[in-house]
């Protein structure tokens, strides 16, 4: 563990967030799902490191207790 950057790492977080949301504007749920999937795959390919990807999958799998 510890390979995945979980500290603040994006310069201009507000701009990135707006860009992400804007990319989904006007899309149906199915189109948005497809866009998200393509984005995940492109980013995963860019990262490449299997250990980082596994850590990211774990880190993203937060289970909320109700």
């Amino acid at each position: 563990m510890g390979l995945l950057k979980t500290n603040a790492n994006i310069a201009g977080p507000d701009e990135f967030y707006s860009e992400l949301i804007a990319a989904h504007e006007g899309l149906t749920k199915a189109q948005s799902d497809a866009l998200n999937a393509r984005l995940i795959l492109l980013l995963a390919n860019h990262i490449g490191d299997r250990a980082v990807l596994s850590e990211a999958l774990k880190a993203a799998s937060i289970r909320h207790s109700s």
Binding site: A34, A37, R38, L41
Partner: peptide, 10 residues
């Protein structure tokens, strides 16, 4: 299926 189709489109 969403991911499979995304792989193929990319």
């Amino acid at each position: 299926r969403v991911f499979r189709d995304a792989v193929l489109e990319l």
